[in-house]
Simulated scan of single mutants.
Amino acid sequence: MTPISLAVSPVAWWQPAVDLAIALVLSAAIGLEREIRQKSAGLRTHTLVGFGAALFMLVSKYGFSDILGDSVVLDPSRVAAQIVSGIGFIGGGLIFVRRDAVKGLTTAAAVWLTAGVGMAAGAGLWLLAVVATVGNFVVMLGLTSLAARLPRSKHAQSRLRLSYSDGRGVLRQALAECTSRRFAVDELSLDQPGQSRDTGTVTVTLLIHGPGSIGDLTSRLAEMEGVLTVSCADADTEHI
C-alpha cells in the first residue's frame, strides 16, 4: 500500500479504517473465548490489545508521510518491534506463581498472539490475520482434548482436595491408600483450621505424584466411610 497523501483518492482514506475494523473483530473473537473461560484477561483486554497494535501499525505506516523526503528516511518496522516488546509487559502481568504452580501462561500467550493479529490487520495482511485467528481456536479448542489424552508423567503433580468427618481416622486411611497405589505425598495443607471445631468437617489439600491411576485413587477415596467430597486437578498446568 502506498503512503497516504493529499493526492490520493478519497476512497483510499477508508483503508486504515477497514484495517482497524478487521483487527477489532478478530481480536474480540479471541477475547470472547477467554472471557467465556473466565480468564484474567478476557474480551476487553484482548480487543484493546489487538485494536491498539493495529493502530500503532497504521500510525507507523501513514503517520509520517508528510515529512518524508530526500533527507528524511523512516523505518516503519521499528514500531512493530516495539509492539512486540511492549506486549511482553502485559503478558508478564498475567503470569503468577502460587506455591509450585505457574498460572496464566496460556492467557499471556493468547494476548501476545492477539497483538500479532492486530499488527497483521494493521499492515493490511488480512488473510494472515484471519488464519492466525483460526489457528488460535484450533489450539485452544482442539489441542485441549488432545493434551488430556496424552500419557501422564509419573512426576506430574496432582492437587487432591478431600473433605471428611473429623474423628474417624479418615486422613490416615487416605494417606495409606495413596501409598498403596504408588503415590507420594509432597505436601499436605489444612483448609480453614477452625472449621472442624464448628462443623465437624475437615478439608485438606494434598499434592501428590506417582505412576498410579489418579482416577482410580479418587474413586476409592470417595467410597471410604466418612469422606464427604473429593476432587482432583493438575497442579502444574493451567486449565485453558
Rank of each mutant, 00 (worst) to 15 (best):
C178N: 02
S165N: 08
A17E: 00
G122D: 12
L127N: 01
I4V: 06
Q195I: 02
C178T: 13
G122R: 11
T114L: 00
L221V: 09
L58N: 05
T144N: 11
S145F: 08
G91I: 14
G215Y: 05
R98Q: 10
L160F: 15
S85M: 02
L32K: 05
G63M: 11
V139C: 11
C178H: 04
R161H: 08
K61A: 10
G118M: 10
L160E: 05
G63Q: 09
T45A: 11
G142P: 10
R152W: 03
G86I: 04
G93N: 09
A148W: 09
S5I: 14
L24M: 06
T2S: 12
L43R: 13
H155C: 00
D75V: 13
L24S: 00
D75N: 10
T45Q: 08
A53Y: 04
R182D: 13
V59M: 09
V102Q: 06
L127V: 13
G116C: 11
S27W: 10
G63H: 14
V73S: 07
L128S: 00
Y164K: 00
M57H: 04
P193I: 03
V49M: 00
T218I: 00
G104Q: 05
G124T: 08
S213E: 11
L94F: 02
S231E: 11
I36V: 14
T47H: 04
R37Y: 01
A148R: 15
V185Y: 10
S180A: 14
D19M: 08
V79R: 01
A129D: 01
A129T: 07
D70H: 15
A101R: 12
D66W: 15
H209I: 06
A53Q: 00
S165D: 07
L175W: 04
R172C: 04
V130R: 06
L105M: 10
L48I: 15
R161C: 03
S196Q: 09
L228M: 12
A147H: 10
M1A: 14
V72S: 01
V11S: 06
R159A: 02
L171S: 08
A115L: 04
S219V: 05
D75C: 07
L175Y: 09
A53T: 02
S180D: 15
V130W: 05
P10F: 13
F51R: 03
M119P: 11
R168C: 04
R182K: 13
Q38P: 01
R220V: 12
L207K: 12
R98M: 05
L228V: 15
Y62K: 07
T106D: 11
R197A: 11
L141D: 09
V139M: 05
K61T: 05
V139F: 15
K61E: 09
G210L: 02
G226T: 01
P10C: 12
F96Y: 10
F137A: 08
A148I: 09
G200H: 09
D66N: 10
G93S: 05
G42F: 10
A12M: 11
C178P: 13
K154Q: 15
T45D: 02
R159T: 06
